[in-house]
Computed example of a mutant assay.
Amino acid sequence: MKYTPPSRDAVDPRVFDRLPLAAWREHAGFLEARDWPSVDALNACRPAGMRERFAAQTRELLADGLHYEQRIADRGVIATRACNWHDLFNALVWLCHPALKRALNARQVAEIARMGTKQRSRAQCALTHFDEAGAVVVLRDPSLLALWDAHDWHGLFWRERAAWLDGRIGVELFGHALLEHALTPEKLLVGKALVVAGPQVLPAEAFQACAQAIADGRVLCDPLELRPLPLAGVPGWHAGNERETFCREAACFRPLRPGRNYPAAMTIGQGASVATDNPVPTL
């Protein structure tokens, strides 16, 4: 079912004080002000070195006949609809993580050149899933991965609840559709995750590792590489997870399908080198 976000004046302002949207307080003015930000205001916040710019999506802009992704690659223009939550969150992700967005765009354009605009490859589906619903998980305690592999949600989110609070595991949202859905606090959010493991890995390093792996074509070659992560189980992300039974009852906590396997996490060691073991996923 297609998600219809609340109008700007109907959003409960309290959603911006709780995760995941609380992590985006740097751009509170764009999110919480009464009026929608202009593309000029968004462009004024671009980080140094970001060549891409936002442009109002108008009939004149679309008259160039370019695919959305090709327009970004060829002209550095990100078509942005006015008064639109989805495109606003997309813009904020560009402002915060331009290298990762650029890596996704380059891979999409390469796939379009190979497949044409009428068909989509498995890689394109994986890239889109991550772009829309992606999450980057920082894993400092590798023992937690076995619980995730088994879809032992009670173990991952309740028995190991402290791990989410003491830094042994953490999650940063990347997908702009997920951020849009978070405007409705009762939504049971599920992310499509890439995992970066290391004893002292920082979120910035994890995002850099993901961007490099995507650019190199080592990840996101198939949607089945992405690990589903029911974000509603993360402490502080949904009021229901304060009850032990939540991870057994809520619809987002699905059992592991027979034969479903996940690739190993990317790892960052002492020298910040990145490795990944990415076998072909199975259903």
Rank of each mutant, 00 (worst) to 15 (best):
P258R: 14
D9C: 06
L226A: 06
T117S: 02
L66R: 08
A265W: 00
V190S: 10
E180H: 08
L21S: 06
I112F: 04
A63C: 13
A103G: 01
N84E: 08
A211S: 15
E26Q: 15
A56C: 12
E186G: 04
V93G: 11
Q200E: 14
C247P: 01
D17R: 09
R218A: 12
T58R: 15
L31Q: 09
R25L: 05
A250N: 02
E132H: 02
A182E: 07
K118D: 05
F130E: 02
A44C: 09
A22D: 10
G76C: 04
I72F: 02
C252P: 00
A110I: 06
A82C: 12
V219R: 11
L194R: 04
F174W: 03
V234N: 01
P37D: 15
L147W: 07
T128H: 02
R46M: 02
A232F: 07
P199S: 13
K2G: 08
Q119R: 07
L283N: 03
A250H: 01
R257V: 03
A239I: 03
A82Q: 15
E180M: 15
R122N: 08
N278P: 05
A239K: 15
N241Q: 09
L220N: 09
I112A: 11
G155E: 09
E249G: 00
D40N: 12
D64R: 09
E52Y: 06
R218I: 07
D222T: 10
V138F: 03
E186R: 14
L31H: 10
A239L: 04
N90H: 11
C252T: 04
G259I: 13
D166R: 14
V137A: 07
L92H: 02
P228C: 13
A146S: 14
K187P: 00
L179D: 01
L139W: 05
L194T: 11
A133H: 10
L256K: 08
R59V: 10
G170C: 08
R46W: 05
T245M: 05
H181N: 12
